[in-house]
Structure formats: structure tokens, C-alpha cells
């Protein structure tokens, strides 16, 4: 598959907010902004700057903090530029200088000559490296797109899937009307972050939070229902698969079977919900969400119910034995 490559320019273009903001700006080497970033890792190039290039992780983003920056100033003052010119012979994606301290002029000139971008951030080294890790792990996370609607119901991210025309969007609309939130309609982009968390979001920010409702056309959910009715991203925690009622199919009547769907190697609980006129799907989805929360809190309605029945039957049979003996005497 022809994977789209992530460039330094893409890194600068990322729309990140609050605790994810990298506050990066490019100060020189703009010609190299098209360089690819192939790895989510970060390298501190202290050893390389001092002239030791064995196992130098040049393919990573190079982060320069106070210590390295001070060392560069020392090198510049002493006129030792060999190490610096050698470091630029490697195809480094970019350098990031933290603490808002610009590099020594000699380093900037060398970067400009090598077309290697230098980015500057006001954040401290520790902060920028932890933010970069988080951001890059998201960028390089495996992703897939699913045809369905992602809604947040009582804090649970529910992915509604099913054939087109089965009523996914209508169900979502009713859920929004009831105070729940829309994350994405129709095309849900899912990323697997930290190995076991599925983050769902809309595929495209520009046309996000619009829905197509048969008979109405395209509606803007944000404008109609307010910002309280939308969310940018949400973990996919439950899948509700809507399907036409099939009288030959056996549906779960108890709820002790745990069916799951595999998305990017993560197993997500799945419920098959048959759709039939007169069945109020949004309320069923709402109940499913609450039931899922209850399960997360350690209470499994169906299992608990069954346990109670077993206990009851046991005590009944114990009684029967006792009373049976009594009667026989």
C-alpha cells in the first residue's frame, strides 16, 4: 500500500491544542521542510555534536536542549566546526531547539546550507519531548476507516454500523436530540494508540459534524444543536451493529454471550441490534451504553441475574430435600 509520508511541514501544520500544542516555528532551512519523518522517536544528539557518530540515530528528530545549545555556543566560540559540518552530512529530518533559545549563528548557517530545517519551541526540553512522543505516536499509529457513525452516549463511545439505509444516521440524530454527542458521521477514522486504545474521529475537519438525513439532505449538527452536541474524538468502546430484523436469525436474549469485533487487533464488544418498525433504537443504544458502564464498574446485569437464579434454585432444592424428608416421616 502506498502510505502517505509524514513530512516536517506536516508536523508544523498539525492542529494541536492545549496540552498537545508544540508551539513550533521554523527559523531556518525552510527548503528542507519536505523532509520525511519516518520514526516517532526523538534523539538527543549530544554525542554526535562532540564527534562520536557510532550508532547515531540520524533518522530521528534531533532535540537540542540547554546543555547541547550551550555546547554549540562553546564550539562556535572556539571555532571548532568539524563536528557540526559532519552532523549535517546525515539526512536528519529536522532539529528542534527548546526553551526558545535560537541556535548559535554558525549552526544556523550550516543548517541553511544543508537545507535542514531548524524548529524553535518555547517549551522546555522535557515538556516538548513528552508532547512530541505523544503527538508522533498518534501520527504513526495504525489507522483504518470504518463506514458508520460514532456517537458518545453517557460517556461511552459507540460506533453504529450497518448497511446503508438501515437508519444509523437517524438513530444518531435522535441520540443527539436526547443530549448525546456526535463525533463523526459516515466515515469514521480509527487509530490504534498505545496498542489497545481505539480513537475514533472524523476523517476530515472541514466537513466534519455534518450528517446526511434522507429527505432533509445535509445538515450541520454544530449549527443546529450547538457545540454541546459534538466532540472531536472519542475512544470506540462499544459497537452496535444495526441490521434488518431477520426472523430466521437467533438474537441474544440473555446478554451473557460476549461477541466482539476486531478493529486493528483490538477486540471491541459488539451488540447486534435488529431494526423493526416500532422498535425505538436510540433508547436501546442508550441502555446499551449504561449497561456497558455498569459492566466497567464491575456489575454485569445478565451474569448477576443468572447467578441469583442459580443461588435461588440451589436453596430451593436444599429446602426440597429438607422438607421432603420431613414429609416422609
Amino acid at each position: 500500500m502506498d502510505e502517505k509520508r509524514f513530512t516536517v511541514l506536516d508536523l508544523l501544520d498539525l492542529d494541536l491544542k492545549e496540552h498537545d500544542a508544540l508551539e513550533l516555528r521554523c527559523i531556518c532551512g525552510r527548503k528542507g521542510l519536505g523532509r520525511h519523518i519516518n520514526s516517532p522517536d526523538i534523539n538527543r544528539p549530544g554525542l554526535a555534536l562532540s564527534g562520536f557518530f557510532e550508532s547515531f540515530a540520524y533518522q530521528r528528530i534531533q532535540l537540542i536542549g540547554r546543555g547541547e545549545a550551550a555546547y554549540l555556543h562553546l564550539l562556535a566560540a572556539e571555532g571548532r566546526e568539524d563536528g557540526v559540518s559532519k552532523i549535517f552530512s546525515f539526512p536528519i529530518p529536522c532539529f528542534i531547539f527548546s526553551n526558545g533559545e535560537p541556535p548559535a549563528p554558525m549552526f544556523a548557517e550550516a543548517a541553511e546550507a544543508a537545507d535542514c530545517p531548524i524548529l524553535l519551541s518555547e517549551l522546555s526540553s522535557t515538556e516538548i519531548s513528552s508532547r512530541l512522543m505523544r503527538v508522533l505516536n498518534n501520527v504513526f499509529a495504525p489507522k483504518t476507516s470504518v463506514h458508520g457513525v460514532l456517537v458518545e452516549v453517557y460517556g461511552i463511545g459507540i460506533l453504529l454500523v450497518g448497511e446503508s439505509g438501515v437508519g444509523k444516521s437517524e438513530t444518531a440524530l435522535e441520540l443527539i436530540e436526547r443530549g448525546h454527542r456526535l463525533v463523526a458521521d459516515d466515515v469514521v477514522e480509527i487509530r490504534c494508540v498505545s496498542g489497545n486504545i481505539l480513537m475514533g474521529s472524523g476523517a476530515n475537519k472541514v466537513i466534519g459534524h455534518h450528517m446526511e438525513i434522507r429527505g432533509l439532505g445535509i445538515i450541520n449538527v454544530t449549527h443546529l444543536f450547538g457545540v454541546g452536541a459534538i466532540r472531536d474524538k472519542k475512544q470506540v468502546q462499544l459497537i452496535c451493529s444495526l441490521e434488518e430484523w431477520d426472523s430466521s436469525k437467533v438474537y441474544d436474549r440473555i446478554g451473557t454471550d460476549e461477541k466482539t469485533m476486531d478493529i486493528l487487533g483490538v477486540q471491541v464488544p459488539q451488540l447486534d441490534i435488529p431494526v423493526k418498525p416500532g422498535r425505538n433504537i436510540p433508547i436501546i443504544v442508550e441502555t446499551a451504553a449504561m449497561n456497558e458502564r455498569l459492566k466497567k464498574m464491575g456489575y454485569h446485569s445478565a451474569k448477576e441475574f443468572n447467578q441469583n437464579i442459580l443461588r435461588w434454585l440451589e436453596s430451593e432444592s436444599a429446602r426440597a430435600v429438607y422438607f421432603g424428608r420431613d414429609d416422609s416421616i
Partner: peptide, 18 residues
């Protein structure tokens, strides 16, 4: 389109292709 495959029976999907 490229890596993205979408259901041709969904309007929003097709528009999302850009």
C-alpha cells in the same frame, strides 16, 4: 482514491474523499 476506500452509497463518504 489512493489509500482511502469508501462506500459509494454514502454521500458524506464520497464528499470526504475530497
Amino acid at each position: 482514491k489512493g489509500d482511502d476506500t469508501i462506500n459509494a452509497k454514502s454521500i458524506m463518504g464520497i464528499i470526504t474523499l475530497g
